[in-house]
Design a protein around this nucleic acid. Structure first.
Lengths: 216, 216
DNA sequence: GAACTGCCAACTGTCGACAGTTGACAATGC
DNA sequence: GCATTGTCAACTGTCGACAGTTGGCAGTTC
């Protein structure tokens, strides 16, 4: 029998709240009222508080003493700083992936790229889900659990920022797919240095795109 | 009047527990009993639980459902993985520091290096405190708050690993000081690439030293 | 003697209630 | 009209108690 992933109420509350924050159901800038949310989830304040503290440690909530928890609202500087961290982590991951990738990793990477292309050719937008999947697959290929964990947290915060943004424009999507292909090639070649360089350029582009999106 | 840094009991408990874990007062592998620690700190289990969860999010404690919190006990693979993360972060920080450092930063870096040398020449060991201070100063010079935050957490976990280890041997200390000097030079020159390279070599050396320390 | 079963103490997970703080609003004085 | 002060409701911080789970131990069976 499969043990439930989260028996504890706190764990369930984390999942529900995280979803609500990431989808923008709880919009940036708004506050999380403990008693209100607790009875909405049908739990007491204890577990909910633990859930809130947990999400705060992930950067998805901001705690203010005696005031409560807020969904952080980012400005341009935050985005830049966050992408500095993301770049550091994902460039390192790209390097490691280039030197550790297995054939299975390469197959997976190609699959994600292919699916993106198919979507794009069919006139559909490049779903962010596939972008995330690509990066996740690359991270997995790096086989560095600590880096992977940190990247997951950073990705989440990027998703949070995105939730307040409009969708990407097609030229950006095209460039992203090209970057991904180039990354796969570098990883396949085992060229760590090039993988890092391409990743840096890619993320720099993505960051710039997000910054322009913010000014609309 | 200076406002207390942590009014909340949970915040104070975090500080106390962190100290006890990092100094090895609560040794790796041992469990943290909630009721016992709570009454030792003179608080109830609520705030203590929050403190425990917080430290767990920092990687200083490991939570096991229905069993409690344990101080993690690392093996060689953990150390390697942790240093992959540390390398990713500190190399990026070194690059950024090289391009952003001010004259004040350089003075500070020189000061720390000088103090280390003085200590060493006086026949005293290179205190780990100064090593930490050097890296912290370099991180500050990078002016990237998110990277700085993550590095702090990683440093902490390294300290936790060290707490179970013997002291460094003099040859290693000498090499570390040379590395630091070289790093300062690269940062002073604004040579981001070299700063990253030196940092990578430095951390690789430190990691290797820790791994050999573990096998004694 | 070894393996299994049922019980028990210890501990974590959860809850409801009380206490202290904060920000806002109304009342007051200038 | 504006600043100041007093009051209050809402909310977070904290506590003590109860419930559920876990691992270990004694008792039983073969």
């Amino acid at each position: 029998m499969t043990p439930p992933l989260h028996l504890s109420l706190a764990g369930q509350a984390v999942d529900v709240l995280r979803e609500q924050v990431l989808t923008g159901e709880i919009p940036p800038g708004s506050r999380v009222n403990e008693v209100e949310v607790a009875q909405k989830l049908g739990i007491s304040r204890g577990p909910l508080r633990e859930a809130i503290r947990h999400l705060a440690s992930e950067g998805l909530l901001m705690l203010v003493p005696h005031r409560g928890a807020f969904v952080p609202d980012a400005d341009a500087d935050d985005v830049k700083a966050l992408f500095e961290l993301r770049t550091a982590l994902e460039c390192a991951a790209a390097e490691l992936a280039a030197s550790r990738r297995t054939d299975v990793d390469l197959v997976r990477l190609h699959e994600v790229c292919e699916e993106s292309r198919r979507n794009y050719r069919a006139g559909q937008p490049f779903p962010y889900r596939l972008d995330l999947a690509f990066h996740q697959t690359l991270i997995d290929a790096a086989r560095s659990p600590h880096i992977a964990g940190q990247v997951r947290l950073v990705q989440q915060r990027v998703v949070l920022l995105r939730s307040a943004l409009l969708d990407d424009d097609p030229p950006h999507q095209h460039a992203s797919m090209d970057d991904h292909d180039e990354l796969v090639q570098a990883v396949a070649d085992g060229d760590a240095s090039r993988a890092s360089t391409v990743m840096r350029r890619h993320l720099s582009r993505v960051c710039a795109q997000m910054l322009t999106s913010m000014n609309r």
